[in-house]
Design a protein around this nucleic acid. Structure first.
Length: 710
RNA sequence: GCCGGUGUGGCGGAACUGGCAGACGCGACGGAUUCAAAAUCCGUUUCCCCCUAAAGGAGUGCAGGUUCGAUUCCUGUCACCGGCACCA
């Protein structure tokens, strides 16, 4: 059994075997029952807009109506439409090739029955992927059946075409070619009538293209109903009211979201706690007997047979058992009843949908997690004082999980919430997507890529070994380009602290960034500088400043402030930059004879090491121990910056004349606008640009700049 | 096609609310130290003009706009990345 993406041109991707479609009985989750809540509760979480939008589009809510059309020779054909107001423009119908009406048409044996049968058979053998691939050319056949348009009373043809999908709505549509691009293309391809029923302001209808959008109904009067002249919103309401009154339809909301297929035909997965009796009825395994464990199998390769059998089918003794042995409640089924176990297994989602809950209470033998553990780990206040709607405070994960894992986990969490097992409606309060690390690769002039080990650098330019010049480009890491980085190698050469620090310093956490091995030296040198700042490399003893340098002390407070704020906003790269600045400023010059004349004091080092700990934990703990700190530095309180140390007595500000910087002046921090203005106006570098005139306007931004407008 | 994101030195990036563009790192160049090299330390490093410096000019994908002032806001446009793609 294959997944859709493993089928290429109707054959298996591996081996090229022919692929057969076959309906199977499988376990599904009714996630569609939660569609509305999964959509509306997106308002409760602090997630990236792009991800919330993707989920909303995936759920795909649309409002409209269900309309019943009478089809003599078949019965009632029900369609879903978002534009009930265009009912008068429905000049034909289309059903999906899998629709029951198609079978009825074939069995009816009309003139075109053979063509209908061939078309339906051809569609069945094409995968959905293929059917959606060629959207340019519409195909279809007339079923020969006729439907009655309830608004006009006209008999209109019913076609079948694969542009209508069985899996959405009712698998049938009323086609309004004048106002739907897809229907228009189909009508044009098969010469079906087009009738305008909406006038859109500023968009003329000339019969060469569909016009869609909000407008006013026209050509929309019939024996029982007229919506002539109503705007689209009112026309929809009027049609729906008429449909309800006459028993022909109703308001209806539809979702693109489908139910969730949860069966897999693999060995490695949780078995379903389900058994079947001899007549094929299914029964649950009782809670007491859970979990159902996988039986040991010497060989879990697939089974060859005409009817698909999952690998668990090989465990014959396990599969064929009794109700009592399998753990079915005797009240449901007598213990001696022979039963067969379900042989499908669950997909990986069965674990990924709730692991974050179990992590909070992993040793609990009686419950998934206790209320106390949930309260401690998963129920917290947001910064604005409100409660997080979702348990996990901050969930960092790739954007590739935007619609699958993150939607499925929300669904499970809501089910658990409804059953009273968790106290929040959402699993993840704040979501952050980290970027993907990419790598450099090289490109020939024709655009083809070259593996990195085939490229050498000459005079600052890159050349293919034995070939022409190549340009450096950014690509995904891949085996074929030989630009994959193995963390173990980097750690072996530079250590885990350097590796961690490098990844944190590369750039914004959310951005995709290229790995550049050459740059690792920079953060490695920083760690070495930190070490030498505190430790005499020859003796291993501490190197401490006799007394704190006031400028360094100020900078340390600034660094504490900066790093604290940067960690809050996950800007680790700039936090590291500020620590580098501090260490550079505190580093003793080479010519300094007595180490006690420079560097940091014992107390200053203690503060700095606490800042460093989250970034380079091993080095920080080592330094902490050398400094004689108690316990581990990770448990030490976070340093606090003194706000008074964050402001200087004087600041340098720029003086602009007509928006161009002409001078930089030092002014007292507390100086008012008038003082700053007079200092600026008297500056020798400014005077020539004023050309003797006095400024028409002076803008002073305290602590930042002055702009003189002539 | 539709939706979203990103474009800043040779390279990775910084500039948090419209206020000094290029923090920090890499690389490169120059110097100190060394018998020498590695390591280390110091300095220079957006581009143009210029022997150099001073001074000047240009500059955040491109073209406009708003503003005293735009990497930041608005309009248009190009490129790249991601998602969706007959959902009636």
């Amino acid at each position: 059994m294959l997944a859709n993406e493993e089928v290429i041109d109707g054959r298996s991707e591996r081996g090229g075997y022919p692929v057969l479609r076959m309906p199977l009985r499988q376990w599904m989750f009714r996630i569609t029952a939660y569609a509305e809540r999964l959509l509306s509760d997106l308002d409760l979480v602090d997630w990236p807009d792009s991800t919330r939008t993707m989920q909303a589009e995936w759920i795909g809510r649309s409002e409209g109506a269900e309309i019943d059309f009478e089809v003599p020779g078949f019965g009632i054909l029900r369609v879903f439409t978002t534009r009930p107001d265009t009912l008068f423009g429905a000049t034909y119908m289309v059903v999906a090739p899998e629709h029951p009406l198609v079978k009825a048409a074939i069995e009816g044996g009309g003139a075109g029955a053979a063509a209908v049968r061939d078309y339906a058979a051809a569609s069945a053998n094409r995968s959905d992927v293929d059917r959606q691939a060629d959207t340019k050319q519409k195909t279809g056949v007339d079923t020969g059946l006729r439907a009655v348009n309830p608004a006009t009373g006209e008999a209109i043809p019913v076609w079948t075409a694969d542009y209508v999908l069985m899996g959405y709505g009712t698998g049938a549509i009323m086609a309004v070619p004048a106002h739907d691009e897809r229907d228009f293309e189909f009508a044009r391809a098969f010469g079906l009538p087009v009738r305008q029923v909406v006038e859109i302001a500023g968009v003329a209808f000339d019969g060469t293209a569909a016009t869609s959008g909000h407008g006013v109904a026209c050509n929309s009067g019939g024996p029982g109903l007229s919506i002539e002249g109503l705007d689209t919103t009112r026309a929809k309401v009027a049609v729906i009211e008429w449909l309800m009154k006459t028993g022909r339809g109703a308001r209806r909301v539809n979702y693109k979201l489908r139910d969730w297929l949860f069966s897999r035909q693999r060995y490695w997965g949780e078995p379903f706690p389900i058994v079947y009796d001899e007549s094929g009825r299914h029964y649950p395994v009782s809670e007491r007997a859970l979990p159902v464990l996988l039986p040991e199998l010497a060989d879990y390769k697939p089974i060859e047979s005409d009817v698909p059998v999952p690998p668990l089918g090989k465990a014959t003794a396990w599969v064929s058992t009794t109700a009592g042995e399998a753990g079915v409640d005797p009240a449901i089924l007598p213990p001696g009843t022979p039963v067969r176990r379900e042989t499908n297994t669950m997909p990986g989602w069965a674990g990924s949908c709730w692991y974050y809950l179990r992590y909070c209470d992993p040793a609990n033998g009686s419950r998934m997690l206790s209320n106390e553990a949930e309260r401690y780990w998963l129920q917290s206040q947001r910064k604005d004082g409100g409660m997080h709607a979702g348990g996990v405070d901050l969930y960092v994960g790739g954007a590739e999980h935007a619609v699958l894992h993150l939607l499925y986990a929300r669904f499970w969490h809501k089910v658990l919430f409804d059953l009273g097992h968790v106290g929040t409606p959402e699993p993840f309060g704040k979501l952050f997507h980290q970027g993907m690390l990419t790598a450099y690769a090289y490109q020939r002039e024709d655009g083809s890529l070259v593996a990195v080990d085939q490229v050498e650098e000459r005079h600052g330019a890159h050349h293919e070994r034995g070939g022409g010049p190549v340009t450096q480009v950014i690509a995904k890491m891949s085996k074929s380009l030989r630009n994959v980085i193995n963390p173990d190698d980097v750690i072996a050469e530079y250590g885990a602290d350097t590796f961690r620090l490098y990844e944190m310093s590369m750039g914004p956490l959310e951005a995709s960034k290229p790995w550049n091995t050459r740059d690792i030296a920079g953060v490695h040198r920083f760690l070495q500088r930190v070490w030498r700042l505190a430790v005499d490399e020859r003796t291993g003893g501490l190197l401490l400043a006799r007394q704190a340098d006031p400028a360094v002390e100020r900078l340390l407070h600034r660094t504490v402030h900066k790093v604290t704020g940067d960690i809050d906003r996950l800007a680790f790269n700039t936090a590291i930059a500020s620590m580098i600045e501090l260490v550079n400023a505190a580093t003793r010059p080479q010519e300094m004879k007595d180490p006690a004349d420079g560097g940091l004091t014992h107390e200053q080092l203690e503060r700095f090491v606490r800042l460093l700990a989250p970034f380079a934990p091993h080095a920080a703990e080592e330094l902490w121990a050398k400094l004689g700190g108690s316990g581990f530095v990770v448990h030490a309180p976070w340093p606090i910056a003194d706000p008074a140390m964050l402001v200087d007595d004087e600041v340098e500000i720029a003086v602009q004349v007509m928006g161009k910087v002409r001078a930089r002046i030092m002014v007292p921090t507390k100086a008012d606008a008038a003082q700053v203005e007079s200092i600026a106006l008297g500056h020798p570098d400014v005077l020539p640009h004023l050309a003797g005139k006095s400024p028409r306007k002076v803008i002073v931004v305290p602590g930042r700049m002055v702009n003189l407008v002539l």
